[in-house]
Amino acid sequence: MTMDTTGTTHDTFWARVDALLDERRDPFDDPAVADALLRDPALLEPLERLVDRLGRVEGLARGRPMDGAEITRSTHRRSRVAAWVAGAAAVALVVVLASRSGNVDSGGTARPDAVPRDTLVADAARGDPGAVAPATSDVAPARPRARIHSFSSTVRHERCDPPVAATPGDPLLVSWRQTWTSR
C-alpha cells in the first residue's frame, strides 16, 4: 500500500495510523507508513510523539512500564525508520546546498571542468592537506572588531486635532471625535 502524504492526504496517513493502532499494531512496522515517512519526514516527529504517549498511557493502565524487550524492539524499529527518514532529509538538504556549489549542477551531475566530488570527499576524509581541509583545522577564526553595524532612527510627532468638519458652536454638532495625525 502506498499513500500520498501531500496536501489533504495527510488525513490518509493518520487514518492509516489510527487503523494500525486500533489493531494494536505498531505503525513503525507498516511499510506504507514507512513509505509515507520517507516522502514526508516531518510526519515522523508527531507520529513518534503519539506512539510514545500511547505507550505511556498503556504502561500506566497496566500499572507497570513497558518491559525491556518491548522497549528495545520498539526503539530499534523506530531508530531504523528514523535513520531512513533522516537519510532522506539529509539527501534533500545536501542536494539543495550542494547543487549551488561549483562542481555539481542541480541534477547532481559533475561538470567536466570540476574536481570530482568523490575525490574531494575522500581527500577530506583522509585529511589530505592538498585537498579540502577539514573546516576548522588550521584556520584561525576572525577576531571581533569594534564597529557599529547599523543605526537608524525616526522622530515623529503625533497630535490630536479637532475634526476637520467640526465647527465649534455649531448647533447641529452632537458628536465630536478628535483624530490623531502624525508628521
Partner: peptide, 29 residues
Amino acid sequence: ITTTLGDDGPEVEFSLPVVSRVSLSTSLT
C-alpha cells in the same frame, strides 16, 4: 479648546495632546 454641543448642549472642553516619539534601532560590536 472649549465648545458647546448642539443648540442647547453643555459646554465641553477638549484636550489636544501632542506626543513626540523617537524610535531608534542599532547593532554594534
